[in-house]
Design a protein around this nucleic acid. Structure first.
Lengths: 248, 248
DNA sequence: CACTGTGACTTTGGATACAGGATACGTTCG
DNA sequence: CGAACGTATCCTGTATCCAAAGTCACAGTG
């Protein structure tokens, strides 16, 4: 046995760090959709994407199948794909699902959080408080996401983790596109949530998470009852497979 | 405007009916994994899959990216993919998530079900009852899934729909592989659930759904507290989407 | 002036080609 | 006899190629 250092967990080896084009294309493509560079309804031809990213069509096609499965684009058989249109109706559905999932995350975090975890959460809160003082709202938004991810990590439910990431991307999408209003974040809600987790009270944590999501939903979706039709494109085919999912 | 009949919703047009190879391969591949034809840990080379399905590597690759995103296979960078190993730990997590989601589905169904919906649900129950009498358990299992799908459809939450389909496939997977025991289905629980929905009582529906999932979980996961390690494969990479998109 | 047939151009869907990293195996040397 | 090294083979990652289908413009016709 050689005495070379074994790779520490968490530190990916060089081989693991290798990123195939399809994955880089996937990230870039998804970002562009979420940020509105590729607008809803816009047709995405494989060749143009390939040109945009400076690769051949193959990696593009693989990435397209994934964003299709994730629901960001719709397939028109034999006619390629178009960017999907996020609509407020499905956003209400999305918030309903998030509420269920985030309350579960909060409960599990409250049940399992150790002292170190609590410190980490409080640090994030502090950072966000400072960010608010300095009016750095990008930072605050980033810390917001980080806090939620951390809570999910603490809970340790891997399904919850991947599902939440996926759902959150869609939330981000509608925010960026201005389909719904971005609510100014109430950090007092976050404080309550973290304190409930710190005190190890699952019920209180769940309650705090529910209120937080409700507040976000109420702010983002002011019109609480619009039966608007589902804004489908005729002939569009459903995602290749339903949403993605699962941890490694 | 021509007076040709517009395509009825639900009746796909000829064009929509066209199924590219990648999709057929995806279905076949996923089925084979779920049914254990391709066993956990087994290496899947693209060429062999292509040969198995009688197509070239391209459709295979596109299908592989999707099952990878769905968590059925793991990528070993530059070394291809292996079939993932479902483990009881992640199954507990899965049931926790399902409980949250199915209770939501039941609640929404109770709130929105119309008379026709109720009739449909009762028909399914009847069919299952008859199936049980005749000992046709495949039929019963099928009707079981159908009932759950129908409840979700009635609720009308599209996110819930796609997520549930995805989660259910994984449940099916562990059942088929015998990782957990398949519990004999208690149809009395289903009857209670349907009756609660029929009576338009969201609370009762949610309660019934919770009990149903709990019973299923208890039957499938008898050992309620095993901190078994996460059975990871060294160097295996997460599903295609590693990072949450950070806007530039 | 609306409608339809025609042909060029575009784009998808799928197969094939090829370079380079992984893997297996045999050989040599300690 | 066993470990290090070299070599042949396999497989992935990516690009290129080809055929079939789709789209579009435009001219001819009733």
């Amino acid at each position: 046995m050689s005495d070379a250092a074994a790779p520490r967990p968490g530190e990916p080896t060089i081989g693991e760090r290798h990123t195939p084009l399809r994955e880089q294309v996937l990230d870039a493509l998804r970002s562009r959709i979420i940020n509105g560079v590729y607008a809803p309804g816009q047709r995405l031809t494989e060749e143009r994407l390939a040109e945009d990213f400076g690769v051949s069509r193959n990696p593009v096609r693989e990435a397209l199948r994934v964003v299709q499965a994730e629901g960001f684009v719709l397939e028109l058989p034999r006619r390629g794909v178009i960017v999907a249109s996020p609509d407020p109706t499905s956003m209400r559905d999305l918030f309903a699902v998030r509420r269920r999932l985030e309350t579960l995350a909060a409960r599990q975090a409250a049940e399992r959080a150790g002292p170190v975890d609590i410190v980490g959460l409080r640090d994030l809160l502090d950072g966000a408080r400072r960010g608010t003082e300095v009016q750095d709202f990008d930072l605050v938004a980033e810390l917001n996401s980080a806090l939620h991810r951390r809570i999910i990590d603490i809970g340790g439910n891997r399904w919850l983790g991947t599902l939440s990431v996926s759902l959150y991307r869609h939330v981000e999408w509608v925010f960026r596109l201005g389909v719904v209003d971005r609510a100014p974040h109430s950090w007092t809600e976050h404080v309550r949530l973290v304190e409930a987790i710190a005190s190890g009270d699952p019920e209180a944590a769940e309650q705090a998470a529910a209120e937080h999501v409700d507040a976000a939903a109420a702010a983002a979706l002011p019109d609480a009852s619009a039966p608007s039709p589902s804004h489908d494109v005729p002939g569009a085919r459903a995602p290749l497979s339903p949403l993605p999912d699962r941890p490694a």
